[in-house]
């Protein structure tokens, strides 16, 4: 999927290191509570469902739906400005958690709420790979 070589990769904090390591391999992994089975994102020490502190990084389907989105015209940095207009969306994963991402692909600007989407892995500066989404038909 279209690389953004001028956009830096994310800062990686300790909670999220396994998430980004999996992304580098083209896998989307989410913490799943070992006590009650609740998926949680973004990565956290305690389960928001039961308070448990045991979790397993679990590969998820990478499928979801657009909960909301915006087409950005005013961008935060020169590198993002060069990409405008671009789409930011809140994606509800089939497994439950919500995450923010860009919608990529030639048809991204035609996005509507409820559109089904699937994860892709986008290369950024330094070869870092970032989970992103594209609309999928059907």
């Amino acid at each position: 999927m279209e690389p953004w070589p001028d956009i830096p990769g994310p800062d990686v904090n300790a909670d999220a290191a396994p998430y980004w390591a999996a992304a580098a391999e083209g896998r989307l992994v989410i913490q799943k509570c070992a006590d009650c089975g609740t998926f949680r994102f973004y990565p956290r020490h305690l389960c928001p469902g039961c308070g448990g502190d045991a979790a397993a990084w679990t590969e998820v389907s990478g499928r979801g739906a657009v909960h909301s989105f915006t087409v950005v015209h005013r961008a935060p940095t020169p590198a993002f400005r060069a990409l405008a207009p671009y789409v930011i969306a809140l994606i509800d994963l089939d497994e439950g958690p919500r995450m923010m991402a860009n919608l990529l692909g030639a048809d991204a600007l035609e996005t509507a709420i409820g559109d089904p989407v699937g994860v892709v892995f986008q290369e950024r500066a330094g070869g870092v790979r970032v989970p992103q989404f594209v609309r999928r038909s059907g």
């Binding site: 994310p10 909960h67 909301s68 709420i113």
Partner: peptide, 21 residues
């Protein structure tokens, strides 16, 4: 800083998603 900023939002983008919904 780790899970929103990498996607290029400014504050209006967050409220825009609220408005759209």
């Amino acid at each position: 800083p780790y899970f929103e900023t990498p996607y290029g939002p400014l504050v209006p983008a967050f409220y825009a998603m609220v408005a759209r919904r």
